[in-house]
Design a protein around this nucleic acid. Structure first.
Lengths: 159, 159
DNA sequence: TATACAAATGTTATATTATAACATTGGGAA
DNA sequence: TTCCCAATGTTATAATATAACATTTGTATA
């Protein structure tokens, strides 16, 4: 499996998230942070209703039972800040792990393991350039790019 | 807009579809053909329920009113033969217009106009090679690639 | 021709994903 | 303090997709 200090990597991501939110005058409220933390807990993509279930498990006394709009609002916020990404081909969401500066844009490729659900995210350089050139060639103005690879990760191939 | 003989291009696609189906001992039944024709009618991606509605409009006397599974079964069939593709980022489906030989595989990039819904499909060469190389570099085995560009097409930019 | 099998289709119900619409709360700015 | 707006709570429902089982149809073969 992945050999990295996951706790450290989560903290780093959370710190960065706060910085990014501040720089855009966006409020990373406890609820939004909760969703981000849930996604950061693994490198896996989770469905909105999976997240909802976890939020309900984490629910403490006095809090009201979270409902779908709660999750979708948090997801929308985090997506806008590029702190998470959506796997369009499976309607799931994962925390972005690209090491990036505040305000830095990146075009990501997601490699999703259909066996364990793990997501590896890579920055697309060559592939992206190619796409934009191709788009230019027939006057298409790209707003958003989706690049997803579904398959089997290295660990799962060993089994 | 697109300047091609659309009727001819549809016929060509239908002929090819029959060839491909035959070569795989798959039956391109009237219902399946109907769905393919509906998608070929435009270069646009349609949702399953849009297709369902059109099927109902085209319904002739004595036929039973189509239901969702009817559409989804036809879509699944056509997807398996690579005669159509799904736009994962908007849950819609479009007829593949790549000129291909029977049995020829292709990795497609879809350029979807968010204004008019038009889909331009291009074969991904460089971009695809890049993806597979990247996947190899960390032992990921790709089964399926999704490449979608959302944006504004040339015609719509003029308006 | 009869039979039986599998593939395709019909039908009903429901699962899954996502959002609309409106009420309530809470934290600053004027 | 008052007002406003962003955030959250709440209820209902829209949009997308599939499960499960019944029926039909085509066709291979006894």
């Amino acid at each position: 499996m992945l050999s990295h200090d996951h706790k450290k990597c989560i903290n780093k991501s959370i710190n960065l998230a706060h910085k990014i939110a501040n720089s855009k005058a966006a409020k990373l409220t406890p609820q939004r942070l909760q969703v981000l933390r849930i996604l950061l807990a693994g490198h896996k993509a989770l469905g909105a209703y999976d997240i909802l279930e976890i939020m309900r498990e984490q629910q403490s006394e006095g809090q009201s039972r979270p409902q779908p709009p709660t999750v979708y609002r948090a997801l929308e916020f985090l997506l806008n800040l590029n702190l998470i990404h959506k796997v369009e081909s499976q309607n799931s969401y994962y925390a972005c792990m690209i090491e990036k500066d505040v305000n830095e844009q990146h075009l990501a490729q997601a490699f999703i393991c259909d066996n364990c659900g793990n997501v590896e995210e890579k920055i697309a350089e060559t592939g992206a350039r190619n796409l934009y050139e191709k788009a230019d060639s027939f006057g298409f103005k790209i707003e958003h790019v989706i690049m997803e690879c579904r398959g089997i990760c290295a660990s799962c191939q060993l089994v």
